[in-house]
Amino acid sequence: MRVHVLGSAAGGGFPQWNCNCPNCAAYRQGSPYHLARTQSSITVSADDSNWVLFNASPEILQQIRSFPALQPARQLRDTAIRAIFLMDAQIDHTTGLYMLREHRQPLELWCHALVRDDLVRGNPVLKVLEHYCGIHWHSVPLDQRNFCIDGAPGLLFTALPLLSNAPPYSPHRDQPQPGDNVGVTITDAASGKQLFYAPGLGTMEPHVWAAMQAADCVLVDGTLWTDDEMIALGASQKTSRSMGHLPQSGPGGMLEWLNRLPTTTRKVLIHINNTNPILDATSPQRQELTRRGIEVAFDGMEITL
């Protein structure tokens, strides 16, 4: 199984267009220790020919151009993206669907019914696409049974509900329901190797922890370093947890959980906010991650399992 990170930043990307936090300012001043990042998305394949796209970020066209495997050019109009899997209905994970409207047939879209409802009513992306290529919707089951995706041979998928937060336009905002946000275990059917992917994870529940322990690699929420990061910078009045993201540091933070995983587990943080000090490769926080054997995802990162 091959995993390619198309985008590794949280909403807004890095640098964020209107932000002058220490990270964004350092990047614009030419710092060699800060890498630009697009908004989070990955793509996965078992055969290097058929790919499942996880989330469709606003920079999807740039991301496709940066990864030629997604455009094999076998005919006049072509793509190697066989299906799109949405983890949630957030703007930074769905706006790219507009950019895929030239598809010759309906897009094969996998998401939970609550996500589909938000994208029909609250932010009607799917309604708009009815006037273009259309959507062939598949409901993502949350009973933790394996399922296959047509056109993606050699891969098995298992989805599970996460306690995070729905978008501001969702009727479930601040009242999360199972299906608003999901995590997914992707299994290579031939080798049995597993990736657990959860770019938005607000609470560590027993079934989530079990999935992480079983995985060979975890690619998980790295949005903010501290719970009050945005408040301390004056960028927001919201904590990390209130936005649906488990902070990395502090009691019960992501680092504590990652430390408890087997030493053989590859640990990677993704969906990194522009304010997070781990974006500075020389920061004490980044050095702490390195000491703990935790990686920071970057655009173009390759993971092979």
Rank of each mutant, 00 (worst) to 15 (best):
V3Y: 12
V5G: 08
A9Q: 01
G11T: 09
C19M: 09
C21D: 04
G30C: 02
Y33D: 15
T38R: 15
T38S: 12
S41G: 08
A46C: 10
A46W: 04
D47G: 06
L61K: 14
Q62R: 14
S66N: 15
F67G: 09
F67D: 14
F67H: 14
P72W: 09
P72G: 05
L76Q: 13
A83D: 03
L97V: 10
L100M: 10
Q105D: 12
E108F: 08
W110Y: 15
H112E: 02
A113T: 14
V115G: 03
V115W: 00
V115S: 04
D117Y: 12
D118R: 01
R121I: 14
G122H: 06
L126E: 04
L126A: 06
V128L: 13
L129H: 01
L129N: 05
C133F: 07
C133N: 14
H136S: 13
S139N: 14
V140Q: 00
Q144S: 12
C148W: 10
T158R: 15
L160D: 00
L160G: 09
L162V: 07
N165R: 10
H172C: 11
P178F: 03
G179Y: 01
T187V: 13
D188R: 00
A189S: 15
A190F: 11
S191I: 02
L195M: 13
F196E: 08
T203P: 07
M204V: 11
M204C: 11
E205C: 10
A215H: 00
L219Q: 04
V220Q: 00
D221C: 09
D228I: 05
E229N: 01
A235C: 11
S236D: 11
Q237L: 12
T239Y: 07
S240K: 01
R241C: 05
S242M: 09
M243E: 03
L246S: 01
M254T: 13
L258H: 07
L261N: 08
T263V: 14
T263P: 09
T264D: 11
L269R: 02
H271T: 11
I272P: 04
L279N: 15
A281G: 02
P284Y: 01
Q285C: 03
Q285V: 05
Q285P: 00
L289D: 03
T290E: 13
G293V: 07
A297H: 04
M301E: 09
M301P: 07
